[in-house]
Structures are given as C-alpha cells and as structure tokens.
Design a protein around this nucleic acid. Structure first.
Lengths: 250, 250
DNA sequence: GTAATAGTGTCTTTTAGACAATATACA
DNA sequence: TGTATATTGTCTAAAAGACACTATTAC
C-alpha cells in the first residue's frame, strides 16, 4: 500500500475534488413516438447544445432524490403526477475528461412518464422541451449525453420485456391496444395484435380489468375496448420478449 | 431557478465536497460454494469490520479502471489472469450519511473470478480474504456494504440467466458438469443434469467443444467428460431461466 | 461388482407465433 | 356500406421439464 493509498483510506479529503450530478433520461410517448426531455444549455461548456436535465446533488439528498427534484423542476410537475413517474438508476459515467470544467461523475437515471404538458410553462422558462428520440441522430448533445441516452434507450427496451413498466407511459386506465402501442413505439416495430392481447392477459398481475370500456370506438372505427389498470406484478412471468436480433447476441 | 442553482450550473466548485469511490463485489467459487472478497478495516470508521475492497478514484482514471486496480491490488492478480475476470458496473450508492467522515458516493462494481489464490500473499498483507457468502448473515459489514452485496448477488443470479458469464467462474476449459455446478452454486439449488446439458449445447455460442475430454472420470466415478471453452455469444438466446419464485414477482 | 456421472432418448406441458374468424363502431 | 379495430379460436412450432436409459469410470 502506497502512502497515498493509506492517506486516502484514512482521510478522503486528501483527494482532489469531484462533483457528482444526477442526470435524467426522461422518456414519454406522444403521437406514437418516443420523446426525450432535453434542456438547451445557456452557458459554456456546450452553450447552445441540448443536454439531459440534471444537476449537482445537494448535501442532504441522495441521487435518486436529486434526480426526482431535477425532473420536477424541469417538467413543472409535482404531487401525484410526479409520483406516478417511474424513476430508476441507470448507470454512472466517470470519464475524467467528460466535463472540461472539473471532474464530474454523473449518476444517470431513467424515467418513464405519461404524456405530460410541455415544460417551461410553470418553471423559470429555461429552454426545456420534449424532443422526438427519432431526431436525435441529427443533433449533437452536450458532454457524453448521447452515450447516456443510448444506454437509457436500450435499458428501456429491455425493461419492457420483463417488467410491467410499459404501463407507466400511460394514464391510470388504458386499453390493451394502447399498451401495445407503447411496446411498438419503444421497440420500434409492429406486434401482432391478437397474440399480444392474449399474452398480456395471460401474465399474472400485469393488468387487471376495471370492468369498464372506452366511451367510443377507435378513431377509425372498431368496437369499444375494455379498460385495464396496472396490476400488482413487479416482474412479468413469463416475460414478453422481443424477437431476438442476431446482431445483439454475438 | 434559484441563485444557488444558477451558480451550480455555472461553477460546480460552488458545491460542498464529495468523494467518489469504486467498491467491488468480487465473487468466486470454491468447493461448490460462493465466496466474496472482503477486507478487514484497520482504521475507523468501522475498524475491525469486514468491508468491500475499494478506494477513491484517482484524478486520471474512470471508475471501472479504479475498480480493476483495486481488485488487482487486493488479489495480487495481474496480467492475463486479471484480464479474465469479468467486471461490470453494479450501481451507485449515495445516501448522504453512508460514510460518517464526509459525503462519499460509491460506484459499486461486480466481478466474477475463477478460483484464485488467497490474497495478501503478494500484496501489502492487509487482512483480505475470500469469505463464504453463506456466512455473511452472521457478520455485519462496514457502511452499507451488506446492501451492496445483496444487490450484487441478485445481479449475479440474474446475469447467469441471460449471459454466458457463468464461464468466468471457471478456467479456460471446463466440462458441462462444472458449468452446471456454477449455476447450482450461484442460484442455490440443484438443476437437472440431463436437461441442463442439452440446454447448454443448444444455445448458440454459449460453449464450443475443444475436442478433448478430461484425463480422468469424476472423483466418485463416471465417464470422462468432454471439455468445452466459452463461445462467442454475449447473450444467451433463449435464456436459461431460473424457475420462477412467486415471491419475487409480486 | 457397486455407485456415480456423462450423455442421449422420449414424452408431456408450456409458451410463442401464425393465421383466421367474428363482432363492433366509425366514416 | 366499407373499413379498422377488439377479441377470441385454432393450429403449429419452439422450448422447458420430467423421466428413463446406456455407457463409462472410480473404488
């Protein structure tokens, strides 16, 4: 053990300063497309670039709390509606040069939200917006946020497979067709309506019936659909797997 | 936006100091039991307690590098043998009071290693040891390390389901029976030998034959077994699922 | 020989997926 | 009326799991 190591064990203050931020990859679905909450940076570094919402942890809060606070501030959301947003830790990003100002370790989080009002209304009018994920390849995000978003999207796709979190993109009551639209939007391809329907109902605790149906049929015709709410399962068993993509396996 | 927030955006140095450590939940298998690498702390806080190996990130290294360095230092491992150890990020732990000295955010990592020589030999003879995971309930670990270990164990169990990482607990060549023993040890229950055998061989890229067999049969009899090495799959498809435990689903 | 293990065969059950049919409601 | 959608039915294929059997080797 070097003397430096010993000192480190003995007193962490001996080490150079590090800042820790919580950043949030917040996803929602609008018009059958996936949207991501982004903030346009006003100040350098990366002034003018879009970046993930996030900020430095306050002394008295853990990073999950920090992430939820940042999300509340940027979306203008609060109370029950904020509580319905799913928030989980994604991963930490710690490349020494990822922020030119100083050493900043980011603990990224992933959020699933139902369609929300546009931000900035209630907030201090920063330039915050829900942008279509499909447009991201044409934009360069600040810092390493492109990588973080990619990781978040992959985690989201994966989470829909074995958890009931797809329901978090919807209101408290929804139809099987709306739930299928969430899967199709996040996974990016069409699913067979009949098989999906049967599968969802066969997984214990995924959804439970409300007994009611929609007021009207679909916009382009069709019968009224039954309404469901999220069930009590935390995991889907058996899971709802994406068709295997050979590329991702090897 | 409060002035404090603005300042934070503008200059992270305005925030109180935080230290960032990489801690490692390093697992190995000995005698059909799961072992965890622990360090006995010499200094307060938690002097005399067992703790996860870990330490503060140096200015020029990211946390994965830091975790691998810590693992190398504590195991006395290096070169090819260290490279064969699987290391992945687990999660970050950030409760404000998790370290009484100051704010310390830990980015925990998870490592799978083949059976290794006992530590301390080559190193600076700290009190480091591989301890049976089964004994942990009787020990109180330092800080929030019990929680971190629990999360690591659950991640390990889950990873064996859909990745070929079980092979990382073994040498470069192994029998199907040895691979099955890894699953049985990590999952904590017996598997059907015949069905496991067929399943492993049926998953593309999980293992590939070396053409050779073991020199001798099993210690208690039986034919020589064929030898395999890890294949090129990164994911198992279809996955090798644990029997569903009703408790974990709800 | 006895016992244990490797590896294979076979059958049943579960699940996934393709495809079809029917009923409902919008335009 | 024509079309889109919800829901259910049916059949096939893939996979999981139970169980049995043979061959090989340690002792």
């Amino acid at each position: 053990m070097t003397e430096e190591d010993f000192l480190a064990t003995y007193d962490p203050r001996a080490f150079p300063p590090v800042a820790v931020t919580a950043d949030v990859v917040a996803l929602t679905i609008r018009d059958d497309a996936l949207y991501l909450l982004l903030i346009r940076r006003a100040e350098p570094p990366y002034a003018g670039f879009w970046a993930l919402p996030g900020g430095f942890a306050r002394p008295d809060e853990d990073l999950a709390t920090c992430a939820r606070r940042e999300l509340a501030e940027e979306t203008g959301l609060g109370g029950e509606r904020l509580r319905r947003v799913h928030l989980e830790q994604l991963a930490s990003y710690s490349a020494p040069d990822r922020d030119p100002r100083m050493r900043v370790v980011s603990v990224a989080h992933l959020a699933f939200a139902p369609d929300l009002p546009d931000p900035a209304a209630g907030t201090d009018a920063e330039d915050a917006a829900w942008l279509p994920v499909a447009d991201l390849p044409t934009r360069q995000l600040a810092f390493d946020h492109t990588r973080i978003v990619d990781d978040g999207l992959e985690r989201a796709r994966s989470k829909l497979e074995y958890t009931p979190l797809a329901t978090r993109f919807l209101g408290s009551e929804f139809t099987i067709g709306e739930l299928r639209a969430v899967y199709e939007t996040v996974w990016g391809h069409a699913l067979h309506a009949g098989n999906f329907h049967r599968k969802v109902l066969s997984v214990a605790g995924f959804v439970e019936s409300t007994g009611a149906t929609t007021e009207h049929g679909g916009a382009r015709g069709g019968p009224r659909a039954r309404l469901y709410r999220a069930g009590d399962a935390r995991l889907l068993h058996p899971a709802l797997l994406r068709p295997a993509q050979e590329e991702t396996i090897r």
